[in-house]
Design a protein around this nucleic acid. Structure first.
Lengths: 215, 215
DNA sequence: TGATGGTTTGACCGCTCGGAAAAACTGACG
DNA sequence: CGTCAGTTTTTCCGAGCGGTCAAACCATCA
């Protein structure tokens, strides 16, 4: 087994995956070229092909990583006693994910807009089950008076939309921020406002709950 | 002037634009092919080229239409006396736009995710001005106590995200709706909840304003 | 040192794409 | 009926794409 000094096999595959993620996020599956991915990873095109069979297989691997990160962030919803805590944790987790891994979100968005050719199965099975189960929990919160009457799915859509917007539309946000990307303080403020607005919009209007919303 | 029975020049150009919009929305600029656009419009590829010089010129024309529709919907914000009315009208208008013209929203989203190569100027000038002016109005509503303290831009982002989600992620919504697209009743309910949640989240918590939120 | 197996690379291939060119067609008008 | 401007269609081309291939490279071990 050859032991290269700078790049072992694992490091190379990691570099390829990161390069592919960036290219797919920016250009889309059709727009991305294997040559550009290889160049970004720092190796010739033919060498990239030694590690991944086809462009589609590479894309599929990248997407799998995206879905794994999504599911991981979605666990922030569970194991919280109250609606306020669960929603706050979940929204903040998704905001952080949008901030830290925006590329994955863009790949996901492109996938869905193209009719979800690769992740259709994920939508029909894993995500459907997730929404069904957590939807039941949300309905429980409505029943016991924590939340105003609402359709859980519409709430989830709002959370996903509001949070992923900071990944998918980061360029637009930058443009409307005077051309400079949101700094950490600006993003933290946005996160607070997103949480406050969503919670304020769905929590049953009881004074003690209103007080629990961060300013 | 030749008077064809079925298709005059104006009709043909309209058909081309609609076909191009559909292809660009689904496949993206790189993924779309002029052959597919021509086929969808019902004419040979070379004939399409007689009407539009290049693929990029065609794309640019489609995008201009999208931006025009966006600005038109954005006018729902103006000329409303109160925050409740202005926001309600604007959110509902953007929801209707997402429902009626989802393709444009997807093209816009793809553009931004790709770094806005074509609409950068629009973002930097027209949209920036729009946000600046309406942001001042929103700040006025905060100052006179209609709205809780907030950053207007973050509010706009939430409105854009929540509404355009119904266009950009329609496939996902369909998958989570048991495989069938949202019907009109379901969409109307979603629209009501989006308006209620956003208004409930930003309106200053005064009893009379709360009562103004649609159920 | 020579054989071996994993790795790297330049050259190449078939295909599809956007676009060009030119011929054929069509209807209006003299 | 001939001319002409506008339109349609067939054919073709160069560029760039994903992917292949065989030669070269390199570390290890008998």
């Amino acid at each position: 087994m050859p032991e290269r000094p700078s790049a072992g096999r694992a490091d190379l595959e990691e570099a390829i995956l990161r390069a592919a993620e960036a290219e797919f996020a920016e250009k889309g599956f059709e727009g991305a070229t294997t040559a550009a991915i290889a160049a970004r990873a720092g190796l010739p095109k033919a060498n990239l092909h030694y590690y991944v069979a086809t462009k589609e297989a590479l894309y599929r691997r990248v997407v799998e990583g995206v879905l794994a990160a999504w599911l991981d962030a979605a666990r922030g919803f569970d194991a919280a006693p109250t609606a306020v805590e669960a929603l706050t944790r979940y929204i903040e987790g998704k905001m952080d994910l949008a901030r830290d891994r925006p590329l994955g979100s863009r790949i996901f968005a492109r996938e869905v807009m193209s009719g979800a050719p690769v992740i259709r199965d994920f939508l029909d099975t894993t995500l459907s089950a997730w929404v069904r189960e957590r939807g039941a929990i949300v309905e429980g919160w409505v029943a016991d008076g924590q939340l105003r009457p609402l359709d859980p799915k519409v709430l989830f859509y709002m959370i996903w939309a509001a949070t992923q917007h900071y990944a998918d539309f980061a360029h637009q946000i930058t443009a409307l921020n005077g051309g400079v990307p949101l700094d950490d303080a600006g993003f933290a403020a946005a996160k607070r406002q997103v949480v406050a607005t969503l919670l304020g919009g769905v929590l049953a209007p009881r004074p003690d709950d209103m007080a629990a919303i961060p300013a």
